[in-house]
């Protein structure tokens, strides 16, 4: 999926956190959006996901303006977004259940994804019985089970310790590249941006080279 954002202004209430943003993401590309907290990174993702309408400008996905949410555009939350009353397996099954995939089939597929993120054996655990890193992996498995064409990641590894984080980064990269999924990845972590991005955009400063110094310079303004 390709994304084209033209002159987007968006925010909550009267204050716009995004003003006249232009952004292009090509099919299969991984774009990292960097910026300090409160600069509108999450707002950007919510608009592209279709959860929040922009107040001005356009968001085109494959050339079509975004209107409402779609299973083609998955959002990965910082705080896992799992339903606490569903065990890991049933959380991963959820996107499949929503579109009416028969139980036996979605079981098999969900198990496969849990396996892929290294959580075989934890199918029957409730979210609260899993560590933060494990919950984030469950969310990742759920996102992959959804088979979206565009993945929007909102600082998904922000709450993880360094070791878990780098393992998760590798896993995500591998799977997204493998499936050719277009990705917008939001973070305030410059090293993460360098490690993951095909291209890096600093909110407020525009596109920069995928180099630590270049990103830092842009972030510092």
């Amino acid at each position: 999926m390709s994304v084209r954002i033209e002159g987007l202004t968006a925010g909550y209430g009267r204050s716009a956190v995004l003003r006249g943003l232009d952004l292009v993401v090509a099919e299969g590309e991984l774009l990292v959006v960097v910026g300090p907290s409160g600069c509108g990174k999450s707002t950007l993702l919510r608009v592209v996901a279709g959860l929040l309408p922009g107040t001005a400008g356009r968001v085109l996905v494959d050339g079509v303006p975004v209107r409402g949410t779609s299973r083609d555009r998955a959002l990965v939350f910082q705080d896992d977004g799992l339903l606490p009353w569903r065990d890991a397996l049933r959380n991963v099954e959820l996107p499949l259940a929503l579109r009416g995939v028969p139980r036996a089939e979605r079981r098999v597929r969900a198990r496969g994804w849990l396996d892929r993120v290294g959580l075989a054996g934890f199918e029957r655990h409730l979210p609260r019985e899993l560590s933060g890193g494990m919950r984030q992996r469950v969310q990742l498995a759920r996102t992959l089970a959804q088979e979206p064409r565009l993945v929007l990641m909102d600082e998904p590894f922000g709450a993880l310790d360094a070791r878990t984080r780098s393992a998760m980064q590798e896993l995500v990269m591998a799977v997204l590249r493998e499936t050719g999924t277009t990705t917008i990845f939001v973070t305030h972590d410059v090293d993460e941006a360098v490690r993951l991005g095909d291209r890096v955009v600093v909110l407020g400063a525009g596109e920069v080279d995928v180099r630590r110094e270049a990103i830092l310079a842009a972030v510092m303004g």
Binding site: R71, G81, L98
Partner: peptide, 12 residues
Amino acid sequence: TTWEDALRTMGG
């Protein structure tokens, strides 16, 4: 709101 947002972005 995360729960509802999650479901909607799954196409619910």
